[in-house]
């Protein structure tokens, strides 16, 4: 029984899993940063339209932005 070999193997496996986990987290943070940019662009673009040409206030303004769904593929690209 080579105990040192087992330890090395477990360490390698654990590191691979940790790297995947951290990589997924970093991708989620990238997604969050992209969301900030996207919504700011839409927000700026709808500033004028919010003050123009609709008949009543319940009508949706151009600001139709909403949080995008975060998919599994965005977290761990395949």
């Amino acid at each position: 029984m080579n105990k040192r070999g087992q330890g090395t193997l477990e360490t390698v496996m654990a590191f691979i899993i940790i790297i995947i986990l951290v990589g997924g987290m970093v991708n989620i943070w990238f997604w969050f940063n992209n969301q900030m940019v996207k919504r700011q662009l839409q927000y700026n673009a709808t500033r004028v339209s919010a003050g123009y040409g609709h008949d009543n206030y319940t009508e949706k303004v151009g600001w139709g932005a909403k949080p995008e769904q975060l998919t599994e593929n965005q977290v761990l690209p395949r």
């Binding site: 927000y43 709808t46 919010a50 003050g51 008949d55 206030y57 303004v61 600001w63």
Partner: peptide
């Protein structure tokens, strides 16, 4: 944005 639109149209 909603407040701005409402303010414009009352």
């Amino acid at each position: 944005r909603n407040a701005l639109q409402m303010a414009n149209y009352g």
